[in-house]
Write a protein that binds this DNA or RNA. Structure first.
Lengths: 295, 295
DNA sequence: ACCTTTATACTCATGTTGAGCATAATAGGG
DNA sequence: CCCTATTATGCTCAACATGAGTATAAAGGT
């Protein structure tokens, strides 16, 4: 069985990060590496275009997964090479879903997300208490606190995969819960797809801190607030407005278009565009996140 | 053809980063994923142990490579899933080689490495001038300057792979040079192994900045200078001594053993040990590098 | 005693970051 | 036309981090 190529396409629409799915949101675009494919990336592009009609721009390899072998099953097991692609939604495209539909607890900009983490903390405390020994219980509690930023440790937006795997182990997600047991809100996916999505989210959240990839998710011109809302949507965390502007300004990666945003409430905002020329011409420090404390 | 698992084992000995090789330094430990392997990592461990006798500790997946399909060749091509492992050299083990034997220009702590970059800059200027159009020439020059830190841009120690691939394109390494043509110093390896090694070096150099992985390369007790020399050896860059100590001290990741180093010249240095307990108990900021300017 | 060598403690200027205050410019209601 | 709500934008401040350098301590060798 040849390795499978699987893609996570991300776009941001109306300040919501979206992922392109198939089969009613249960699958990601994917297909086997074939002899005719000139490279892994070529194969991926062909499959994605064939299945979704969406042409890929820049893609980045994420991780290679293998599922566990089945006793008495086929000799070979599925190997999945996953990729992340940043793009924009084209008119009329279907299959795009908000990524927080799959991971509601990852949205710490909204009160619902924060409340959900409080609820999860309670459930995981129960799980920790069910460990066989006192030492194990303590280890579980420490892991929970670190992963979900409890006890004053602070929320780390990059721990998407770790949080999902912890909830998986605790039987709180549909993929692992005993039948009939209550599970957390959040859509499940087929096979390992939700792990792949979690990996993509974590990578993107990490990457916007040190590479200006956020602009691949923006339209040609945008206001500073729009840019900030996009970063907040991806990071799942609120930011300090003035400091965000200061940072963006001193990076010198954008320039004014000279126009102002139409149909605005309040004072009209100037429009900016990304200066594509600077990519490659300069060492890019990226876009550190002036994160406000999660109120 | 099942995917192949390939490992880059790194250790530091006598302030030199070393890599475990086979076949006189031309190969890295590797082997195909088999039906009996419980996971990718398990398979990797078995192959490495079988081929080198070295048991693996913590490993990290690096990247998945595929070679180009050959016209008229077999239907399937080699897929390599690569891993990085940090370890220590055990007594009597053979096959360890200094990684700067393969990439001499990556050692910017020594004058030889810095001189070599000056020479490379000249050769690449010639290569840039041979581009077909003025625009292409300029693009090449920009890429060279950025990748090798010319024109005041500063050396970026994490661009190991980019530098190797540029030299490959320019035909300056044995893997790509026309037969009989002069090439740069630095041992070649079989197949794609040198690219895998470059990927591992880049990842490790990046990682020591934000995770305390350097301690996996240290003996149980060490002096601060020994620690600094190890970081410098990995990063290939000199650092400011006092600031390095300040950083290490305020991280609180190490503690005094109470003893001092034997057989020292000058004032004897206190010995320290890594506090394993803090891993997992705390969010680790890692070990930023107080890099001195490359004199 | 003095010199070389390494260890270690401080100082200082500059830059970065988190937080907040103040003011500007628009629309819409009274 | 004034007032208010709303968003945009400019500016200050304290705390902390960082790069660089000076000064002093403790050993061995001649």
């Amino acid at each position: 069985m040849p390795p499978e190529l699987i893609a996570v396409l991300i776009a941001v629409s109306d300040d919501r990060p979206m992922v392109l799915t198939l089969d009613g949101g249960r699958l990601l675009p994917s297909g086997p590496l074939e002899a005719g494919h000139r490279s892994l990336q070529t194969g991926l592009r062909l499959w994605v275009e064939h299945q979704t009609g969406h042409a890929l721009g820049h893609v980045e390899q994420l991780y290679t997964f293998a599922d566990a072998p089945v006793d008495g099953g086929p000799d070979e097991r599925r190997v999945m090479i996953s990729y992340l692609a940043l793009t924009r939604i084209r008119r009329g495209e279907r299959g795009w879903r908000g990524w927080y539909e799959y991971f509601p607890w990852e949205d710490q900009t909204a009160p619902e997300g924060r409340d959900l983490v409080v609820r999860i903390a309670g459930l995981l405390e129960g799980w920790a208490g069910r460990a066989p020994s006192a030492a194990r219980q303590e280890a579980r509690r420490q892991r929970v606190a670190l992963t979900f930023g409890l006890e004053g440790l602070g929320w780390d937006d990059e721990l998407v995969l770790q949080r999902y795997e912890l909830l998986w182990e605790a039987g709180l997600v549909p993929e692992s819960a005993p039948p009939g047991e209550a599970v957390l809100p959040g859509m499940g996916m087929a096979r390992d797809e939700r792990r792949v999505l979690a990996t993509a989210m974590a990578r993107l959240r990490a990457k916007i801190r040190y590479r200006p990839v956020i602009y691949e998710l923006m339209p040609d011109s945008f206001t500073l607030l729009h840019l900030q809302r996009t970063v907040e949507a991806v990071a799942g965390q609120p930011m300090h407005k003035q400091n965000f502007r200061r940072l963006v300004a001193q990076q010198g990666l954008i320039e004014e278009t000279g126009e102002v945003a139409p149909d605005t409430r309040g004072r009209p905002a100037r429009l900016f565009r990304f200066r594509r020329e600077v990519i490659g011409a300069r060492r890019i420090a990226g876009s550190k996140l002036p994160l406000a404390r999660a109120v």
